[in-house]
Computed example of a mutant assay.
Amino acid sequence: MIRRFLFSLAAITALSIPVAQSALAEGTVPTLAQLEVLPGWDRADGTRVVGLHITLPPGWKTYWRAPGDAGIPPLIELNGSRNLSAMVPEWPTPHVFSQNGMRSVGYRDDVILPIILTPESPDAPISLRGRLQIGICKDICVPAELMFDAALPPGSARRDPQISAALADRPVAGRDAGLGRITCSVSVTADGLSLSADFLLPSTGGTEYAVVETANPEVWVAEAVTRRRGDMLHVQTEMMHVEGGGFALDRSGIRITVLGSDRAVDIQGCPAP
């Protein structure tokens, strides 16, 4: 459990912005992953919207930001990038996969990941240099590593319909999905904390799966148990700090994503009863 957490912790600290070129690093299986940068457009606030298009062979999958116990989140190194002060990924709604009794969360075949870039100087090109590491799986799982070195000049105003569609496919905010009263109960366990969340939310369709995240990257969160009674949804999970022992839980930093067959809902914050 600790080793898996440490790997995930390193991976979730950053995301990828690859170039319009695909190449797997020496020692990995070739031609399984292809990446293309969709240059996107500049926004009025000075940020830049780009799209990372990941293409896999039929039936292969890669993972969401919180990939589940059986998944591997993406890892990025941005060594050498210039004119870039921040980036924020805008994750499209993922799918839930079951394999060998374990569940993972991610994307099959291909996905466009929109990313919002904040340049230090909006009037200068953004230089992106580094490498992307992802896990890709079918009957087996293999690592894929892609080096990138790209320049994104400023001045583009034309919206890319593919990126726009991916942005529209993000989970719906709780307030827009009919989210009602929500409360979180926290209790101490032998390994850390137990979290129980109860909230009013219309069904998202079919068998629902909830993913719980915290604002602290050093806190490991177990796969959640999800139960519904009418419009009331109950989500329970366990949390543990990587170094063991107790830790403070920021309720405002709790994020619960409910994935159903009809839609996904993004719930941020979980107050006390």
Rank of each mutant, 00 (worst) to 15 (best):
D42W: 00
D176P: 01
H241N: 10
A215Y: 03
A70E: 05
N83Y: 05
S252G: 04
H234A: 15
S194C: 03
E26G: 13
L201D: 04
L32D: 05
N100F: 09
L84T: 01
M102V: 07
V225F: 09
L6F: 03
A10C: 05
V258D: 14
R159D: 01
G101F: 05
T47K: 10
S16P: 02
H241L: 07
M1A: 10
A165S: 10
E90W: 07
G135F: 15
D250C: 02
A25D: 08
S85Y: 05
P30F: 11
D250P: 02
A86V: 01
L9P: 00
A224C: 06
T257N: 11
C270T: 04
P67M: 06
S8G: 10
R255H: 15
E223Q: 14
S127E: 14
G130Q: 11
T214H: 03
I54T: 15
R181L: 12
M232E: 13
G246V: 00
A177W: 04
E218Y: 12
L195S: 07
P122V: 08
S194H: 11
Q236N: 13
R175S: 12
D110M: 07
R181H: 09
I54M: 13
P125Y: 11
A264R: 12
A11G: 06
Q268E: 08
V258H: 11
Q34C: 01
L38K: 04
G244K: 03
W60R: 04
A11S: 10
A215H: 05
K138I: 00
I115K: 13
A23M: 06
R228F: 05
R170A: 12
L117V: 02
L233S: 09
G206R: 11
G205F: 07
A10F: 06
R263D: 06
C141R: 04
T183V: 13
P273R: 07
F97G: 06
N100A: 15
R3G: 04
G206E: 14
A224P: 08
L117H: 08
L9H: 13
P143N: 04
G51Q: 05
L113C: 06
S98A: 15
V242Y: 13
V258C: 12
G178I: 02
F199L: 14
V37I: 11
V188N: 07
C137N: 08
L9M: 09
H234P: 00
A150I: 03
G155I: 00
E218N: 14
G253Q: 05
R3D: 13
Y63F: 13
L52G: 08
R263Q: 15
N216H: 07
D266G: 03
L193W: 02
D191S: 07
F97W: 05
G51S: 08
S8P: 01
N100E: 11
A10Q: 09
Q236R: 14
I54W: 08
R159H: 09
E238S: 14
I76W: 09
V96I: 12
Q21N: 07
D160L: 00
T183S: 14
L195D: 06
W41E: 03
